[in-house]
């Protein structure tokens, strides 16, 4: 074929597209046992200017090599309140709890915008349902409390390499919500709002493992499995009650077993929650100066200290 002189031509010999070595040698597989939860890091009081705050992290497994994708979860929560309602709000006999969940734009594989989309609002509603059962709202009339959650790093929705499809219906949302429930519970207790109990979130899933059998796993990391059904519960252990349940997928005949496993996962998460809240409360009480220690009567006894008047 004659060379076309009117244009800049491609090299005569033809080109071959570059072939890159694939980064993933093998997709990550679950190394934990089926009933083992990932290690949780939970600390309260990280934002001193807020009434209550907490930070929750699922650190990545140090045993996996750094190049393979590892799923981890980082959530911060701040609680503002109880504070007075705005002037033109109607009288509310109970505490007005509002939740606000937002993924940071860099939190997931595909960038999210600054404005909340519908999946984040949905997460906020689930969280509100879970927390409203725990908070004793009638002790806080005419007040509002805001729970603001920022997800700094979210979970992948499916096995690595698969087209994750719609971000909103992914399985990773359940694990993120479980973390949000636990961290919000720690922050609310840190803020001093009355609660009936500590609420913890737990997830269990029915997954296809290598032999394509269906097994139940606790605390699934969706990047490691092909999930068939998953269930999240927000569990109150001292009352044995569930304030929030979210189940997706086809559980077949064993729905009760799936719920039981989710409750078990929530119980495992609660042990960490109890530790963290206890540590921070002890630190706070120890830091309180002696005159502020509670006396047995509600009002303080003795000589009231006056404000110094100058002059």
């Amino acid at each position: 074929m004659q060379a076309d002189r009117r244009r800049l031509n491609a090299p005569a010999g033809g080109t071959a597209p570059p072939v890159f070595a694939s980064a993933n040698t093998s997709p990550p597989r679950r190394r934990r046992k089926a009933d083992e939860h990932r290690k949780i890091f939970l600390q309260t009081g990280i934002v001193p200017s807020a009434a209550g705050s907490a930070y929750y992290e699922l650190p990545p497994d140090p045993a996996t090599p750094p190049l393979t994708r590892k799923s981890s979860l980082k959530i911060t929560c701040t609680v503002h309140g109880p504070r007075p309602l705005p002037r033109n709000a109607a009288f509310s006999p109970n505490l007005l709890l509002t939740t606000h969940v937002k993924y940071a734009p860099f939190a997931t594989k595909t960038r999210r915008g600054y404005v909340r989309d519908s999946s984040e609002r949905d997460l906020g509603l689930h969280l509100e349902t879970a927390l409203r059962g725990v908070v004793i709202g009638e002790r806080w009339p005419k007040s509002a409390a805001d729970v603001v959650i920022t997800v700094l790093e979210g979970e992948d929705d499916g096995p690595a390499g698969a087209h994750s499809g719609d971000m909103g219906s992914g399985w990773g949302m359940l694990s993120v919500l479980a973390g949000c429930i636990t961290v919000a519970s720690a922050a609310i207790v840190d803020a001093g709002i009355d609660c009936v109990d500590l609420v913890s979130g737990g997830v269990a899933a029915l997954v296809h493992d290598q032999s394509s059998e269906i097994t139940t796993v606790l605390d699934p990391a969706p990047a490691e499995h092909v999930t068939r059904a998953a269930c999240l519960v927000a569990y109150l252990q001292s009352r044995d009650e569930i304030t929030e349940m979210w189940m997706k997928g086809d559980a077949g005949g064993d729905l009760g077993g799936l719920i039981e496993s989710a409750v078990q996962s929530a119980t495992l998460a609660r042990t960490v929650l109890v530790e963290a809240v206890k540590d921070s409360t002890e630190a706070r009480v120890a830091a309180m100066s002696p005159p502020e220690l509670p006396s047995t009567d509600a009002a303080s006894k003795g000589r009231p200290k006056d404000v110094v008047t100058t002059g």
Binding site: V196, T281, V285
Partner: peptide, 16 residues
């Protein structure tokens, strides 16, 4: 607070 005939704590703090 009271639940099922038993007293429970509703705050995290020292008991008096």
């Amino acid at each position: 607070h009271i639940h099922a005939g038993h007293l429970f704590s509703s705050l995290a703090g020292p008991l008096a």
